[in-house]
Design a protein around this nucleic acid. Structure first.
Length: 442
DNA sequence: AAAGATTCCAACCGCTGACGA
DNA sequence: GTCGTCAGCGGTTGGAATCTT
């Protein structure tokens, strides 16, 4: 396959984006959504290929992007996730609200690899360099291949995704190297479907990371044990932040290094609230205040060099029309603190149908939810802890195994949130097909 | 101050899988 | 079943910024 078809067209610009181009793209997407990317440049008056527009939006213009340097917590989380997921940057990025895969990939290649090496840890295997140098792992290089995903993560044994077969039998054993016990974590939903949470990866690092997901610690309810992964990460980090329990990383086989020095309670406290807010927002109908959310002001102030320099005038003039659109549409931002580009379980469109179809509203069709955000919201308002529990199991099941599909949610969600009432039928048949494929039932 | 080296990261490239005709 | 289109992903590149000499 050669270049993307749209790139064959003549006179397409390449290279860095100008402020004017950014403004055009931002304005267009803010107003109309992206729809089909290949048509965006034409509609927005840009001489770029759709692919380039898409990347620019995802990596730079999206209003929920954090920008700025990575915090220590974020870096630690990336390292931890990389130990488990390898170079699957999009999945790693999904755990870091406001960060893009590109950004994380760059950080990894430029900084984190070095840091790990300095600490005597091989960034590929996450094992001690001495061990790797002695060839202990060379026979089993850490795989980055996609097939790893099928064997390491969550499989709903009763509801395999159409077109895929369950990779493992029920009751698959979670082999934990260096662990005295193997662990299988099964959960059942209301229909008796068994979800097996498993990790059969050869990686030996960060087992605590996953064990935390299933730990029966003192966290309230079952939430910690069954939270979607991206939420659990925070709990995981909370563990790491504990000064009373100086748990070193990679405690099983790797050279440990104490990360506690890198965590401060202040930093953690700033790290935790976004989770709480988004989680509450999704599961309990909690609406964070505007101040809790990325605002246009912070977006404008933090973000790009363009807003800081030249484009502010245009941006401001623009804001009279767009800001009304953006700021008045509180859900657009409030709900997106962690969901733009994220397979976020706080995404109501994604979670509500899964749960409700099976336990509360099976007679309500997917399309009704998809087409009616209010129905979604209403359904979510009725979440009970138990239903939440089931919802999370489900979401976890599908989260990592269907990540690419999850990504599509963000686009649907994005569109719906941009024009939630103007066009209640935003979710096209094509999207429903994709969702069907992703979740296995409509 | 200037030149070279290094770092960083935005953008591109190529591949894959899903989907529709 | 085949082909074309599209979105998404991970690897790579190139140039700007920064650092070192």
């Amino acid at each position: 396959m050669g270049r993307h078809s749209c790139c064959y067209k003549q006179k397409l610009r390449k290279g860095l984006w100008s402020p004017e181009e950014d403004e055009k793209l931002l304005r267009h997407i803010t107003k109309y959504g992206h729809g089909c990317w290949s048509s965006v440049p034409k509609q927005a008056g840009l001489q770029r290929c759709g692919k380039s527009c898409r990347l620019r939006w995802i990596n730079y213009l999206r209003p929920d992007l954090k920008r700025g340097t990575f915090s220590q917590e974020e870096e630690n989380l990336i390292i931890e996730l990389h130990a488990v997921l390898g170079n699957r940057w999009s999945q790693i990025a999904a755990q870091l609200p406001g960060r893009t895969d590109n950004e994380i990939k760059s950080l990894w290649n430029s900084c984190l690899k070095k840091k790990l090496r300095q600490r005597g840890i091989d960034p590929v295997t996450h094992k001690p360099l001495s061990e790797v140098e002695h060839g202990e792992d060379k026979s089993q290089p850490r795989t980055n291949s996609k097939d790893m995903a099928s064997s390491e993560l969550n499989i709903n044994t009763n509801n395999p995704k159409p077109g895929t077969s369950p990779v493992t039998p029920r009751g698959y054993q979670l082999e934990m190297e260096g662990s005295p016990t193997s662990k299988t974590v099964n959960s059942s939903d209301n229909n008796g479907n068994t979800t097996t949470n498993l990790m059969a990866s050869t990686t030996t690092a960060s087992k605590g990371f996953f064990l935390d997901k299933f730990s029966t610690n003192s966290q309230p309810s079952d939430l910690v044990g069954h939270l979607p992964v991206h939420q659990l990460n925070y709990a995981s980090n909370a563990r790491l932040s504990s000064t009373s329990n100086p748990t070193p990383w990679f405690t099983q086989t790797t050279q440990a290094f104490d990360i506690n020095s890198e965590f401060s309670s202040a930093a953690m406290s700033s790290f935790l609230p976004p989770l709480t807010a988004s989680f509450l927002s999704a599961s309990m109908g909690y609406k964070p205040s505007v101040a809790d959310s990325p605002s246009m002001a912070s977006f404008t102030a933090n973000g790009s060099r363009y807003w800081e320099t030249g484009a502010s005038a245009n941006n401001n003039s623009n804001s009279s029309s767009n800001s009304t659109e953006l700021q008045s549409n509180s859900s657009f931002y409030d709900n997106n603190s962690s969901s733009w580009g994220l397979p976020d379980c706080s995404t109501p469109e994604k979670e509500a149908p899964l749960h409700l179809m099976e336990s509360q509203a099976e007679d309500i069709k997917w399309s009704e939810y998809l087409n009616n955000p209010l129905l979604m919201a209403a359904a979510l308002q009725n979440q009970t802890p138990q239903s939440l529990y089931n919802m999370d199991i489900k979401s976890e099941t599908h989260f990592l195994t269907n990540n690419s599909s999850n990504s599509m949610w963000t686009h649907n969600q994005q569109q719906q949130q941009q024009e939630p009432l103007q066009n209640p039928n935003m979710c096209a048949a094509k999207d429903i097909h994709r969702l069907t494929a992703a979740y296995g039932h409509v």
